[in-house]
Design a protein around this nucleic acid. Structure first.
Lengths: 371, 371
DNA sequence: CTGTTAGCGCTTTCAC
DNA sequence: GTGAAAGCGCTAACAG
């Protein structure tokens, strides 16, 4: 004979304990104002039955669902998995579960994910929008009236807070660094030019080279190792090969590094390499790679904190105090100087402690507020 | 005047459309057996109101919650984030959301997470248990009667399916490979010896060295770069330094690699290095690192498929057909020969295509079934 | 084809 | 301290 149903319900507990449902409810919510003897008995029944309150019922009753959603392009991408980890831990600290949905930067998938999450009545949402100006996305968000924080890429057309890195200045000062090294032909390699972050970086690069009177050599065709190798090969086949390469994305940096090695083009002697976004082995490969480091965990942490701030205030007041809320947080990046740009070798030991020490040191650059 | 409530309900839609709730319900569930004109009207109202059915209500009503849980040590760990990504995509294909919870291998956190997920009535669960033989964990799982699949580490004391890599043979043949290179003093470096996977690898290593009549030199103290460096330093300060190092974990491999470089111990000339678990730049660093590659995505994919198989069959029958279900899937690993073990350099181009080609080629070694 | 109705499991007045 | 009862939003019998 098998027990058909799945989970015991509160009323079953009440029955078995010989009390009313109210009492059981009180017990599982802290056990205040319950007679110690009753309390003990109810707890005992709960234990025996293995009772677990149904979040579905609670949610239906009007409570929060106890979940927040995270919509990102990918979860294998170290940038977003780091964010996810931080967000998850903050969610846990706020008694919430994290639902992760990935979009591969496909606006269609993004809208789908968003709708599903709304059906699930997530209490809040953190999203790295594939398209910063998607009308459809903002429409849904506006209607759902669910607290949202955008990360990595702001969401325009809508007064919602966002936490992003200062892509423009990160790229600008990186390029400046190359210029200071007296490189004259600095090429910029990238792909995914539809993304806000990449665009900002391109602007930073362009601003730097142009104001230095240098040529803006931009190749936006990099999609994989093959295209990177092809691009580099072509560049070096020309009469005026570049003397520095600035890659705007983690994977592009790696592709370029491998291609240069494959093509026997010495770095930094023949060409310098500087990448946007740090990665685990950037200091270990030879030559070590100079990069623009983003305060990834800070982004996740601040976004999550901003979100739960909203959640709590929404709980208290029906609408947040008149104070300006939608903050646009922009975090400073750091240039990590290693060998590939031509800088003298940093002592590895030093870099290690340096890396450890700067954890979570991303500073808030600007924190404008406006409705 | 601000609208107080949040989401419109089905009955509001019904009222506005001048129909009964059943009709609306039918509409949002495919719109079958509904008069086209009524259908259109209802859809219109839904559109206007921005109505989104409440999953909470559906779940309460007895439907599946449309969520599955994933409990892993960490989400930044490439191994688990890869699993997560695959699982998420399969979940989506089955109209389910993925809730991710991380434990940092802390059994306490694990139990907490599990309980919360059960409260949320996840339809199924994929878990990489911190402790394969946790009584508490198995008790909860048994009672909750929620479909579960274990990954990376099996869950004993309970007849649930698991999908793991063949750690023993992976480590065994890796060690054999070093032995075939005529190394005589093969040291094994690791930490986290409480984990099933690590233990299996140690067994594989031990079996190989012992049956070859070599010494078993095991250092289980590696926790970070410092400890790795210290261990290696100590080993080489001895009269009989090792001529090969076998690291059992991704991070350990990297620490060892960096420490060797730091200590100016040439690889593979002075000492060979072989690591368990492949990583992105293993082929790019110099020397490139020979590793045991695990079929990570396969693990995630098979686990998710196994899980949804259970979910579907549970739906049909109240209990799965008498056939043996709890499969213990063990997937073969591959030894990727690169330079650090002393093998001649593989042509990089070849490795690239090789890597691409072998994606998802993890073969099922054994697939035993037993109640 | 369509409406009425009875709960799903829980919280929450409001009485006792 | 405690219980009875009214829903939260939805689905699924049952009637029509």
């Amino acid at each position: 004979m098998m027990k058909k149903s799945k989970h015991p319900s509160l009323s079953e507990v009440a029955k078995r304990a010989g009390v009313g449902t109210t009492t059981v409810s009180r017990v599982i919510n802290g056990g205040h104002r319950v007679d110690p003897k009753t309390l003990a008995r109810v707890l005992d029944v709960i234990e025996t039955l293995g009772y677990m309150p149904s979040q579905a019922a609670r949610t239906l009753k009007g409570d929060r669902s106890g979940t927040i959603g995270l919509i990102v392009p990918s979860i294998v991408d170290p940038f977003f998995s780091s964010c996810a980890e931080v967000v998850q831990s903050i969610a846990r600290a706020n008694d919430s579960l994290l639902i992760v949905a990935t979009t591969q930067n496909d606006p269609h998938a993004e809208v789908d994910d968003l709708n599903v999450l709304i059906r699930h009545r997530v209490d809040g949402l953190i999203i790295a929008p594939a398209n910063s100006q998607s009308k459809q996305l903002t429409d849904i968000l506006r209607r759902a009236a669910v607290p949202v924080v955008a990360i990595d890429r702001p969401l325009i057309h809508l007064p919602i807070p966002s936490v992003v890195a200062d892509n423009f200045n990160g790229a600008y000062s990186a390029t400046r660094h190359l210029i200071d090294h007296h490189y004259k032909r600095i090429v910029c390699l990238t792909g995914e030019t539809t993304l806000y972050s990449i665009r900002e970086r391109i602007h930073g690069y362009r601003k730097a080279v142009e104001s230095a009177g240098l040529a803006c050599i931009l190749d936006t065709s990099i999609k994989d190792y093959e295209s990177a190798k092809y691009a580099i090969e072509s560049l070096f086949a020309r009469a005026d090969p570049p003397d520095a390469i600035f890659t705007l994305k983690n994977s592009t940096t790696i592709y370029a590094f491998e291609a240069l090695e494959q093509l026997n083009i010495p770095v930094p002697d023949c060409v310098a390499l500087l990448g946007y976004d740090d990665f685990e082995l950037a200091a270990t490969v030879r030559p070590s790679i100079t990069v623009v480091q983003q305060p990834i965990e800070e982004i996740g942490r601040i976004a999550a904190e901003l979100l739960f701030e909203q959640l709590l205030s929404v709980h208290r007041f029906s609408w947040p105090t008149g104070s300006a809320r939608p903050q646009q947080v922009k975090l400073a990046t750091r240039l990590i100087r290693r060998r590939s740009c031509g800088c003298p070798q940093a002592e590895a030991k030093a870099e290690r402690s340096q890396q450890a020490g700067q954890r979570g040191s991303g500073r808030v650059l600007r924190s404008m507020q406006e409705r």
